[in-house]
Design a protein around this nucleic acid. Sequence first.
DNA 1: TACCGGTTTGTAGTAATATTACATAATGAA
DNA 2: TTCATTATGTAATATTACTACAAACCGGTA
Lengths: 276, 276
Amino acid sequence: MLAKIKAARDTLRKSEQKVADVVIADPEQSVQSSIQSIATLASVSEPTVIRFCRALDCVGFQQFKLKLAQDLARRGTFFYQDVTVDDSSKVLANKLLDGAIASLVQIRDQINEDQLDRAIALYEACERVELYGSGGSAVVAEDAQLKFFRLGKPAIAYSDPHIQHASAALLDKNALVIAISHSGRSSDILKTVEIARQSQAKVISVTATRSPLAQVSDVALTVDVNEDSDIFSPVKSRLGQMVVLDVLAVGVAVRGGDHMLEQLARARRAIDFKFV
Amino acid sequence: MLAKIKAARDTLRKSEQKVADVVIADPEQSVQSSIQSIATLASVSEPTVIRFCRALDCVGFQQFKLKLAQDLARRGTFFYQDVTVDDSSKVLANKLLDGAIASLVQIRDQINEDQLDRAIALYEACERVELYGSGGSAVVAEDAQLKFFRLGKPAIAYSDPHIQHASAALLDKNALVIAISHSGRSSDILKTVEIARQSQAKVISVTATRSPLAQVSDVALTVDVNEDSDIFSPVKSRLGQMVVLDVLAVGVAVRGGDHMLEQLARARRAIDFKFV
DNA sequence: TACCGGTTTGTAGTAATATTACATAATGAA
DNA sequence: TTCATTATGTAATATTACTACAAACCGGTA
């Protein structure tokens, strides 16, 4: 939740940002406050606070507080810690793994059931899937391709933006695009999605809450993680994206009933399990 | 908090016990309820619910709910659960994410510091790195390539077994191979590693404990996860492998001192963060 | 610059919810 | 039974969250 607030903060309206700042500054306090006191602290009106909560996918202030409280409670178990040069390997490994675990916990608590259901419906309605991801997200797109093409419809991943553009232009209304981007701000992916939409294709995005990419998609599966401590690339969001896509694929498979699940299980055992 | 309720339950007044019972019966629900609905469910009056909260050392109902919510959040016991066809999307997502989290916890607790240190030393001693992974592990190898080539030495990932063979044959004693395989039993990867060793290259494997691949490697970074509930491909081991390689790369970076860390952080912000 | 359409924000009122004060009912001991 | 004590509910009140609407703001156009 806190990560979500931080991620969404810049896309919020001016006065909602003030609210975000107050909450970020002292979440422990906010969780015990009433709308009134938060509104006063942020020097905005009370409805603004409510609008802020709604912008974060909460039905109201109460739910917002609850989610935030749970978020804070969990930070005790696994939390982000920056690595330092005098950490031993063991300490280092623990810090990094704790951070990764914490981000998955966060994602778990942010899953938007509604969007997920709609994403599953989009897959069921489509005839083929194209996965677009560049840079680090290319890896995620490829991984997802492996999953999706076992579900019975053609699935292909492209990582080169030019090829993405070309391919997107050739789609039709029976195509489903899954666009993967950590920030959701890369002009390449936005352009690609725009082209895809002109071709009438449906678009699911796997990206940050309220990012430009999320806003131009039919369905947005959001992945917000605290990236502060990632040194190389956003590993945590990568993990999150992979898991979210796994959830989507399994969700589709499950709709296919026991029969499909069993078949997939057999396929998995035959192909990957022994040899990869 | 829940434990507290259970413990205190018998010392409470009759009608307060009714409240305790409905809370214990479904804490997740209670946390989202108003006094009214809890009072109705327990067939007591609203003030009784408040008295119940006070008996548990809370100043009011709100605080009670907050504490309970945090308690529920903290019961962060994540375990594997098989998905079933009648799971809602939400339940499904939670099961899958819990499974993924549990596997990372397991990996964290299994990290072998000694092997990790030796792996770091091997990287420091080498002149170039080749990453081999096929099928699902190809994705991991590519991801790792992105990390390693920022560390200052050439790094390249191959996913095609034939090309792996050819490339391995051209290595020398200054090359480091990182071989990634879930099972560590694929004949392709074993053959590749055998060739690499004949070329005098060093080999780090990221694979299952005591697998054939682990046994023929100079250093084995082991990733063992419970795969029973993975439908498509071993997502969990994929996540684990990625994190373990992140640990290795960060470990190397940290040995480079503050200077290197800072440089990498800058590079990350410039490249990925805004655009991917 | 003045005006228009749309968006953002605040004001004021309403509904819901928690809390208090008090009255009634239950319980138990003499 | 009767009184004292405790437990529980009723009804009023205060607080808090939320809604509808109006004012202010902003960016573009004439």
